[in-house]
Each structure stands twice: as C-alpha cells, then as structure tokens.
Design a protein around this nucleic acid. Structure first.
Lengths: 217, 217
DNA sequence: GGGAACCTTGCGGCAGCCTTACAGAGGCGA
DNA sequence: TCGCCTCTGTAAGGCTGCCGCAAGGTTCCC
C-alpha cells in the first residue's frame, strides 16, 4: 500500500523507509511540513506516519489543516515517550493513533496494517449543527462563540444523536446510552434529558418523531 | 456513550470505572472472558477496553471470536509495557488500538473518544422509489430535497412494502405489521394508511392489486 | 345493475410526549 | 461534620396529534 512518512531526522527516516519498503509498501518521504502538506494534497495514502517536531512548523497544524479540508486519511503520530499532552492533542486534532519513540518497527508496521485495513471514515472534530458549533472529541459546544455547558448525561444523549446524525434514534437506544447493566433506566428519563437539552440548545435542534424517536437534522 | 471494561484486577478496574463514569459514560464491567463475551453479544458498545491477562482465558480469544462473528465494535487493548509481541498480536487479531499499563486516564479517555467517533461513520443508504429518495435505516424520505414526514404507522406500512419491493404484499401481512405494535387491528385500517401514504407520497407510488394486496414498483 | 373491493374523510379517544417539581446522591468548601 | 450546590432520575399533570373506527363515496368486475 502507499504510505507517507513525515520525519525530519534523516537517519531515522532512512531506516524506517528501508524497513517499510522491504515489506512491500510504496513509501513517500517528506522532511518538512510544507512538503508533507503538498504530498497529502496531491496523492491518496493508505496511511500517514507523522512526526510532530518539524523544522518549519508543527505536524499538528498540517493534520488540522487536512482534517478541516475533509481529508480522512488515517494518520499515525510519532511522539517522544514523555509527551502525553502532545498525544492527547494529536488524537483530538484528528489523529487516529500514535507510536512512542523509539518505536519497534514491526509494531509500527502492525499499526499501519490495523489502520489501513479499517477503510476509513473519520469525521472532522468540529461540526456545525443548526446554529451551534460542536467539538465532539472535546465534548464542548458553542453558539456565537459562547460556550454552552452540558452535564455528563446531557452530553451522552446529545452525542448519541450526533453519532447518528440524520438518522432517527429510538428512545430505547437512548435509554441504553444513559443506563448500564447495573443502573437501568425507567420512566421518562430520556424525555427529561431531551427537554433539558432543548432548554440549553434551543427548541429547533432536536426534532421529535412521534413513535419513532429523535433526530438531529 | 456506552463502554465495556474487561479487567480482572478489581482495584484497577474500580478506579477506571470511577473515572469514566465521572466523564458521563455508561460503563459495564466484566472480570473474566466469559462475562465479556456475553456482554458483547448482548449489548452494543461504543468502545471496549480489553485486558489481555484474564483468569479464564486470553482476551485475544474473545476478540477473535467477536471479529469472526462480524462484530466491528472498536476494541482498545490494555497491555503491560514490555509485551510488544502481545501488542502486535492484538492489533492483528482485530484490535483497533492499545494502551500501555500503567496508563494515564485522560489519555485513555482521549483514545476512547477517537475510536468511538470512528465506529459510527456508517454510510447512509439512499434508494430511489418513483420520484422519491428513501433512507430506510434513517426512516426518512425526500422529494426534490424536501423531507416528507411519516408517522410511525405510516412508515411501518411503507417500510414493509419497501422490503418486498416489486412483490405484492397482501393486506393480511400489512395488518400484521400494524398489529405488531400491540393493539389488534380491525376494519379497514390498512386501506386508511395506504390512502394517507398516497396523500403524502403522491398517487402513483403505491399500486393496488385488487384482491391481492399492494405493490411498490 | 348489483355486489364486492377499495378509497376518502371526519372525529373522538388516548398513547406518547413535554414540562415542571421534587427528592436523593454525590461533590466541595468551610 | 455540616451545609450548600449541582446533577440525576422519578413522578405527576397537561397537551398534542396520531390512531383506528365508521360512514359514505368510488371503482372494478361479473
């Protein structure tokens, strides 16, 4: 499969390239953010391995820009062992995975297989819903730049509707979202949460389909 | 969202459960492979966190069994730092990701979000019926881009006709469809619903076969 | 022309939904 | 430990509009 390696340390890059090519992959190499962005715009890759510390800018910016442009190519971030916050930022920026440097090459290979195999289908992290701006990964949302705060359960219901956007979600599915095996839900809890959400989000965001469930337009 | 934690070390399990529940997730807990398998068969999870060292068998076997059964729920493996071969085996068995123990809880959470997000990217399946556009999974339909709203029973009848497209559906079958809600049907209810559907969908969509039933061309 | 099958419309009853209120659980600060 | 606050789930009451029947009209076939 066709891969893109974004890595500025030449020695490391060469050894990774050698290994992946030996495995039969067609691998392109970009040593800086500008080249990487250009390559991703020009070609379609099964997977991109992205180093964060690039000479001409953060790899994260490249990633965000591509995601904003609707690109869903699986991206695997390479980071140093102690940069946990980097990893989280990376995942939230739309990365699919990360590997910790120094990484085992056969492990890298397994991860590439895992991600390329999946096809794809990664939605952007910021989406517009009615007049709201929603960041699913961060579990936050805004209207006119002002943040609207949801409680944990309110978000759980809203997130379930987001995940099935455009499709009708039955009340029993939403009950499932709210309850586990041990804490079952009875009565009209779902209705109550929909009501509370409408109070915060406005009445037009969640539509009722009598007898069927609820939809996010 | 609804999660499943498979972890046999009780102390660790409790602290993860507490954390994830505080984030608003509905989390089920399984302490052995048998329980885990049962839970995954019974409920639909947004993501599963799977420990490999279980008392009654390898978590990998559970994973392989589910994948063989066609289950695509995102699975996140938890493994000890030095078990690189385990990680590779896990990814190749169909896992989507792994975290290394001991892991940072907020990092775990970010990874769960990243994977659960992806699990829902189902493509919508729209089909054309006469001059209508129909999405059966979403229970919605459109003409010229404008949505036509059906009530629950109207949709039940229309959906039954869709499922047998091209074949004649007898009135008694449609009565069954309507009766399955729980109240028995008498009289001309089916005719009434066909009439209401024709009002909304146009007269040419549903054809009458006198003495036999109805067809969708 | 007559009968059977089907279509259409109107309407009361009630299921399903919305909203508000409230009590319990849990967290937090003093 | 106590009080305060937020979040959560249940209960109760009110309202909306869907449901199914009924009645009368229309089409089809013998």
């Amino acid at each position: 499969m066709r891969l893109l390696l974004v890595e500025d340390t030449d020695e490391l890059a060469q050894s990774i390239l050698r290994f992946l090519r030996a495995e039969g992959h067609a691998v392109d190499h970009a040593a800086d953010a500008a080249t990487a962005e250009e390559a991703m715009a020009l070609a379609t890759y099964a997977c991109v391995i992205l180093d964060l510390g690039l000479p001409d800018g953060s790899g994260l910016d490249v990633l965000r820009a591509r995601r904003r442009a609707g690109d869903r190519t699986p991206v695997l971030i390479a980071t140093a062992r102690d940069q946990i916050s980097d990893r989280i930022a990376g995942l939230d920026a739309g990365a699919d995975d990360y590997v910790v440097k120094p990484f085992d090459l056969s492990e890298l290979s397994a991860r590439i297989r895992a991600h390329a195999r999946r096809g794809q289908g990664l939605p952007e992290t910021r989406i517009a819903v009615a007049d709201l701006e929603v960041d699913r990964a961060a579990a936050r949302l805004w209207r006119d730049g002002a943040e609207i705060r949801l409680t944990a359960r309110e978000w759980a219901v809203f997130d379930a509707l987001l995940g099935a956007r455009g499709r009708v979600v039955s009340k029993s599915v939403l009950e499932d979202v709210l309850g586990s095996f041990d804490t079952a839900i009875e009565g009209n809890a779902v209705e109550v949460y929909v009501s509370r959400l409408r109070n915060k989000l406005g009445p037009a965001v969640i539509e009722t389909r009598r007898g069927l469930g609820y939809v996010l337009p």
